[in-house]
């Protein structure tokens, strides 16, 4: 069981690396994870069949747009493992795996919040001229933290069963979950503020507000706003006093590039 738990943990690591390191080539999908779990547990056919059912279940969840869908990789690796080990079907196995997938989702939120401090550390490293150290925060420590969460959660649930996890999940109060969710919504506002800092002046704040209100009132997407922005800029280019009248055509080329 120890060896199997380790190998299944590594399958989870691969699933996580898919989005963190391999540009989301869909290795993390239940169908693929199921096949790997099947290989590890020596029942490829069952792994494929369970993976296929889980794929449909998760596709459905994505379509409903559930607020915080349970973690895809944890859900599919653990559910497929239980389906094979205890000879149940995909749906039953998923209910067993769900507490882990939910716990994983929560730990993930804390992890991504914690990694916001990487920005401070990177800035300090850059100030000190330690460029390689700043890069390692991303490519070494970021990856390592993500990957170990998946490995540990899967290893523990397979080795000790999901009972322990269930107890932990029950012990987490709802107010804490909600509070963490709110904090995770406030942090991007800080990210945007940092971004605005380099660009915003008293004169240009109006453009930020135009973009904001188009989406706030009109519910139009970022793409729509980008198109309007480019068009507006083309108009401004006509109106604004020109220092060099002969060169407007190249100007237009550049703006269209933004599309």
């Amino acid at each position: 069981m120890l060896v199997k738990a380790i190998l299944l943990g590594l399958v989870g690591v691969l699933g996580n690396l898919d989005s963190r390191f391999l540009g989301r080539t869909n290795l993390e999908q239940p169908l693929v994870m199921g096949a790997f779990v099947g290989l590890v547990l020596g029942d490829l056919t069952k792994g494929l069949i369970v993976g296929a059912s889980l794929e449909l279940v998760f596709m459905g969840m994505a379509n409903i747009g559930a607020a915080a869908p349970p973690d895809l990789v944890l859900g599919s690796v653990i559910a497929t493992s239980f389906a094979i080990l205890s000879h149940t079907n995909a749906q039953t196995a998923l209910t067993i795996a769900l507490p882990v997938a939910i716990l994983g989702q929560m730990i993930g939120i804390v992890l991504r919040m914690f990694m916001s401090t990487f920005n401070r550390w990177a800035a300090a490293d850059i100030d000190a001229g330690k460029f390689a150290k700043a890069r390692r925060l991303h490519i070494l420590w970021g990856l390592l933290l993500n990957v170990s969460m998946y490995f540990i959660l899967i290893f523990l649930s397979i080795y000790f069963g999901t009972g322990v996890v269930k107890v932990v999940v029950k012990a987490i109060p709802t107010w804490l979950t909600n509070a963490l969710t709110l904090a995770s919504k406030i942090l991007p506002a800080f990210g945007f503020a940092l971004l605005m800092q380099t660009m915003l002046t008293k004169k240009t704040v109006v453009y930020l507000l135009i973009g904001f209100f188009i989406t706030a009132y009109g519910n139009l997407s970022v793409i729509a706003v980008a198109i309007f922005a480019v068009l507006l800029v083309l108009v401004l280019n006509e109106i604004l006093p020109k220092k060099n009248v002969a060169t407007t055509t190249e100007q237009n080329d550049d703006d269209l590039e933004e599309l």
Binding site: I186, L208, F213, T215, A226, L232, N237, D254, E258
Partner: peptide, 29 residues
């Protein structure tokens, strides 16, 4: 063409409008 300044200014406008739109659609408090 010597119009870099102008292009930079116009590009900033597009950037700010897109950020404005993202504030309206990506935070959701």
């Amino acid at each position: 063409a010597g119009i870099m300044d102008r292009a930079m200014y116009l590009v900033t406008i597009v950037g700010l409008m897109v950020i404005g739109s993202m504030i309206a659609s990506m935070i959701g408090i």
